[in-house]
Design a protein around this nucleic acid. Structure first.
Lengths: 204, 204
DNA sequence: TCCATTTTGAGAGTCTACTCTCATAATTAT
DNA sequence: ATAATTATGAGAGTAGACTCTCAAAATGGA
């Protein structure tokens, strides 16, 4: 097993082809919808053979799916111990979002919107969603010194994810929304116990 | 006139056929998985032609999907005004679940598990999920005299749904769980502001 | 340059959800 | 009983994701 030097022309070309296919796919999805776009069209747009598309992306769904959460989880792990779960997620979220370049963010936006909009993709991300949820829960459990199966931890995790999803859904409908700020405020609200500001009728 | 049902033989037979097809489908899905079950197999099991299956259920997914939420929303609307959003949902949830017969509950359980487990179905229920979320949010907004677009209402709705989903996911893995009780406790926990019982480190 | 390895295109082929048509059978009305 | 309506079965057909094979082309190493 000799280790290769740097990336040769071959590797670079592959990466380029892969990126090209994906870019064209996303463009077509955006322009004419996911279901209405055939793999053949994507191949044509990227000027490769349909079989080549499948060589790079085992399924059509994979053209959209990207695990964007590993960095998040890593950052969460590094969050200050003195923060409670919600605060930790809040800080981490802001940090991760702030670190993105405008281009990266635009790209994420595009993908997220497709995910939240197209049933097939929402489906394909089921595992992803479950995985993220499980990972966040495990991490929060560890931070709090609790068992990962602890209902309280599960509830907190669920509430955090739920607040974020609700925001995502809203934002998919109104992309002009200031996501970073909105995320922060939403998590702050959750951290404060979700008070309804004016008419507090019955305290917890 | 005899107390024969208002429907003629034709209608009754149709209902029966429909139920039979669906029952066999669910059985096969449970036994060998959703994707691994072809419509042809379902037709064979129900002793009808494949085309007949499609006559009753436009798509394979429709064999599983049922809107179970209208009754929930209706009940939510009727919940006492003095309850806060979380309490209202909690009471409603308990009420709806308690009202189910064991058979109904077993049936729901089966469907829910499929929904949470099978990507295609999770996908098909996207609209449903979004709809439920929107409806619950609108209802909560109305209860609180707030605009449906209010972020605070969105957050509360998201947290409620998130807590419930988290529970569902856990329960899909461990069906022995006492769902009704667990739901109640989870919402109670949320209502209390999601405290982590032992080590409260830093209040909001 | 020459050879070995890898990538690609072309295209035939599979699988399965789903559609359509039409003849036959079952049900209902008269 | 007979005619009209409706449901069903049989089966051919479509679409599109995905697989497989093989020869040609591109690339890397010598």
């Amino acid at each position: 097993m000799s280790d290769r030097p740097a990336q040769g022309l071959r590797e670079r070309k592959k990466a380029k082809t892969r990126a090209l296919i994906q870019r064209e796919a996303l463009r077509l999805f955006r322009e004419q919808g996911y279901a209405a776009t055939t793999v053949e069209q994507i191949a044509e747009a990227a000027e490769v053979a349909p079989s080549t598309v499948f060589r790079y992306f085992p399924t059509k769904e994979d053209l959209v799916l990207v695990d964007q959460f590993p960095p998040f989880v890593e950052a969460l792990r590094a969050a200050p111990r003195e923060l409670n779960p919600v605060q930790a997620v809040r800080v981490t979220m802001r940090q991760v979002l702030d670190a993105q370049t405008p281009e990266e963010r635009a790209d994420s936006v595009e993908r997220e919107k497709l995910m939240l909009t197209v049933p097939e993709l929402w489906a394909a991300s089921l595992d992803n969603i479950r995985g993220v949820m499980a990972t966040v829960r495990d991490e929060l459990a560890a931070r709090e010194g609790r068992d990962p199966g602890d209902p309280e931890i599960r509830n907190v995790t669920g509430a955090i994810m739920g607040v974020m999803w609700a925001l995502w859904f809203d934002w998919a409908k109104d992309p002009s929304m200031e996501v970073v700020e909105a995320f922060d405020q939403a998590l702050a609200h959750l951290d404060a116990g979700l008070p309804i500001s004016r008419g507090d009728q019955s305290p917890g």
